[in-house]
Design a protein around this nucleic acid. Structure first.
Lengths: 208, 208
DNA sequence: GTATTGAACGCTTTAGAAAGCATTCAGTTC
DNA sequence: GAACTGAATGCTTTCTAAAGCGTTCAATAC
């Protein structure tokens, strides 16, 4: 099986240098105010040569966001991988961390946030990929939960999708006002409590 | 008690004429391409006189969206008011109709859709009002459900808010592609099934 | 043959001027 | 004096020409 499916295909050394240079500029000045000749200059090469490594500027941005995603998936996987956590805690941790990551990116790296929003709008298939990558992590948690007898589901993939629908609000790009984080985290807890009650109910039904 | 809380304060006859004229133009040409002198012309009056009835152009737009809201709330209330519907069906109907109303507005009256989005962004307090108006309808359904012994909740208002969080995805403005309605409606059903299982579980707990 | 260059092309963004618009208010009407 | 007018104000949008930028490719380097 492929390692995780979240990993970016490994990059040429030159390609990585280009991506690193572009990333620095994207973070400081944003996508729109970064030019191909600046990136080329940072790498001591000509603009034309950039196109030997990336088909377009937007693809450099996608590679940038791909890294963000890989990092986020890694952190989510790590957070739910801790032993000693119940399945409920894992699910709660998953969505709370996801909220926190988006919230922090919005406040601390606004340029990165904008860029990822832009790419997700411009490249719907990439957005799907991201959702599927998270779905995979969720499915693992659900599978473990079933193994431990904490859950009884009819369809893990479907359940993961339902969870993503339910928690959509907490990853949604509606402006995150200062101080809103605690309110959102509180509401997330309420929603998680409800979800877990549903899971309990389904487990009981399956036992009978 | 006030009638519903959703009603707009009654309008002067002249104010209504202004709003009617503005509405026609908003629907056909959009907010930005409608000018105050056009509205005034339609009403056979001068631009200055408009300001005796509305503080600004944006307030005319707000009044327009206020009507949309009143109509939507009325339809939601009517849909869940049908006798013979279980509480589960009422909740399902509520959120499904809401999805349909937003979806249809997006496709059939795009200018009205844009305008309402604009107002909701520009006037957060109005967005809150809208949410509270829907919350009131939800609370009525929940209250009836409790009366009929179909539900046992600890806090109706809180539950209504949780439901709004959970179904946020289905009223969210992410672009509605052609044909996506059926997919969304299907996912909504899955989410509703899960919510109802949670309610069942809570009822059972409260009985014991 | 592979890697790289940089001038050339056409599309997009920008800057600055002109036009248009929302809003105001001194004055008019009834 | 309540309802209304329309010219004046200053902000915003539109227009247009110029500059800037992403992208290409024939030529160059190695």
């Amino acid at each position: 099986m492929p390692l995780t499916g979240d990993a970016t295909p490994p990059l040429d050394e030159t390609a990585r240098a280009i991506l690193d240079a572009a990333s620095r500029r994207f973070l400081h000045y944003g996508y729109g105010k970064t030019t191909m000749s600046e990136i080329a200059g940072d790498c001591n090469m000509s603009t034309g040569n950039l196109y030997r490594y990336f088909p377009s500027k937007l693809d450099i941005a996608e590679a940038f966001v791909r890294r963000l995603r890989a990092e986020q998936i890694r952190m989510l996987r790590e957070a739910v991988g801790k032993s000693g956590l119940s399945t409920q805690d894992k699910l709660r941790t998953f969505f709370k961390l996801k909220l926190k990551l988006v919230y922090d990116r919005f406040h601390d790296r606004p340029k990165a946030y904008e860029l990822s929003q832009e790419i997700l709008k411009e490249r719907p298939s990439f957005a799907d990929e991201w959702e599927r990558a998270e779905s995979r992590v969720l499915c693992e948690v659900l599978e473990e939960g079933e193994g431990a007898g904490e859950l009884a589901l009819c369809d893990r993939n479907r359940t993961a999708r339902i969870l993503q629908d339910i928690f959509f609000r907490f990853a949604s790009s509606s402006v995150y006002y200062e101080g809103e984080y605690d309110v959102l985290a509180g509401e997330l807890d309420d929603v998680m409590d409800l979800v877990w009650d549903a899971f309990e109910h389904r487990k009981e039904l399956s036992i009978r």
